[in-house]
Design a protein around this nucleic acid. Structure first.
Lengths: 196, 196, 196, 196
DNA sequence: AATGAATGAGCCTTCATTCAT
DNA sequence: GATGAATGAAGGCTCATTCAT
């Protein structure tokens, strides 16, 4: 039945996230994914045409989902501070809810592999654009200092959030990401010159 | 003779940087490194005991060198703004002068592989400590708002610089990294509340 | 119902002939046969216990049918020349009417696989015996030179017809096999010393 | 050293002939060839880029060699009967001296696989041309009846010899091929109308 | 020390066959 | 009976590593 097919597809994708997170994409054996997913090796190939395609679909699906959520969170915000808060919060809570995905993202996002880059660049660029739009709007709404370079500001916002996530992923401390939300927001506010 | 041995060691390391940058560590064949280095495959194993060790030594040597330089640049700085400027500048110019190393660093720095993590964490942690010391000193010297969370500030500083480097590495535009130095410094200044 | 079962059995056999002819027995996937036959992969196994059995049955059925026809054509012949003509003609027209089967026969007839050899050898040996009987009778009827080695004569007759068929199968020219009937018959007549 | 490389290449080719003869090309595992050749599996791929290439090179080398020998045997013949005798004799003795090659040739020569066909067709066509030249010359020299169709005569000559070889290959009797030389020659002589 | 041919363990992928529906 | 998704054994090929020269 249709539901079962989609279910298994997602089960394999979930298994792949977990497996990739544990050892990394390249060293990960397809049979490991199969084992975690509870299916036979060959079954994987009924749903994906290659190991690489699993990684590509994984990014497409999960990052698309992430962007979706980010966008809807931003819609209800009324000023730049709220928007930045929403970005940090959404990013953090998504990654906290998907630790394995977070690990995979932090690592494999930077692969020089061209097929992968092509697949990733779509959603990632959209995320970047989304952040840049927030800064741009902030300037127009006089929330943000006009001297701010939009690209560099985006690099700061994304880079900081991303680095905090990497930190959280690599140090297996019990500390939550969300705990740093306010501190990070204050840094961004100061950097962009937001009104209190 | 001793010089020749050291020379070849470095030649292999240089070749490895180039090779890893092009395709990534895992997909890179040892024979590719050998070809670029102009030595036989077997020769590699007279200098390194495995492909993994190449990567590990690579980080140890090149990051150690990087930290060294960073430290000496910082010594001559008299206030927080100068120190932050030195960090950005040194990081940018080092990476611009070692583009392949920059690529490898951005990608492989995040490997979940434990041996590698152990090797990297030394120099990387020292870099983090160094940044945190700058922030800490800034607070003591009343350059930095006392409410600033030091760890989060470090994540911002490193994350932003790192993201700018990744951006530069992946978009093969002619744009130099250094061009963004002042803009980035202004963001940091605002974020930390530095005096003008 | 019984008819339907036999129908489907033949449909699968026909599909197999077509599929084997296209790519050869070994490289041919069972799913290809199923697709051509318009049945599910699993259905094949309700009629045959393995892929190999399809090939075996195929030879048994189609070659049996071929021998049957050959035998009935020979019965009405009154002398050696007519019999040889009947053999060539029947062989040619059967293969022209079953081009795919001809292809499969030319190729797979020579498999070293022992199960297959055993299955083929029955009808093939009967065909050989039939040819040899014609030569033998020719000698008794004084149609054929008595010095003729019967086995070698059979090799000539079968080998020539078979090679002409292979030629026709491999060169996809429009040329018909039957066109060479008379020329070949004259060669055989000369070889065996038939009276004009 | 150069000799050693060529040696090993031939050793693998010999092993492949033996292995293919035993089970057929498709079912034959590369590891079987390696075992017979006394080398590691991977070594095969230092000399051939794929299993298929082994088969292709095998035909190119061994058939080229065969044609070479055939041509030089024919050069010293003074009439059609001698030439036909030389063809049969050379073919038979070559195959008797290379039984495994004979087996492989009889079977795989007829593969529908296009790459293989292309590789084979060169030497095989040359063989056909060579036979046809003998018949043609025979007609000009008034040795052969002018009514003989050259193509059909070639099909008879090659087909008969080939079928005798197949017969000899499949029936593992002690009987030698050469024993039938005279009987076959007489058939050809009669078929073509050669003078006594 | 240097070489590079050889090794062989290992892995992605295929596909004949099974079996729950 | 029919289906086709699922299975998992098997195999071609790769490549890090070794070692005879």
């Amino acid at each position: 039945m249709a539901v079962s097919r989609e279910d298994k597809y997602q089960k394999i994708l979930d298994a792949a996230v977990e497996a990739f997170a544990e050892v990394g994409y390249h060293p990960c054996q397809v049979s490991k994914i199969a084992r975690i997913a509870g299916v036979a090796d060959g079954t994987i190939y009924l749903y994906f045409k290659s190991k690489e395609e699993i990684l590509i679909r994984l990014f497409e699906e999960r990052m698309g989902d992430f962007i979706q959520r980010m966008r809807s969170e931003l819609e209800v915000c009324r000023n730049t501070r709220m928007r930045l808060k929403a970005i940090i919060q959404t990013h953090f809570s998504y990654m906290e809810g998907n630790r394995s995905l977070a690990i995979v993202t932090q690592v494999e996002l930077r692969q020089p592999n061209l097929n992968l880059r092509a697949a990733i660049s779509g959603p990632l660029k959209e995320y970047f654009r989304l952040i840049e739009e927030v800064v741009q709007a902030g300037i127009q709404e006089k929330d943000v200092r006009p001297s701010v370079n939009i690209r560099v500001a985006r690099q700061m916002i994304f880079g900081t959030i991303d680095e905090a996530t990497t930190d959280w992923v690599l140090t297996r401390s019990g500390r939550t990401l969300s705990k740093d939300l306010e501190g990070m927001l204050e840094l961004f506010a100061g950097a962009l010159g937001l009104p209190d």
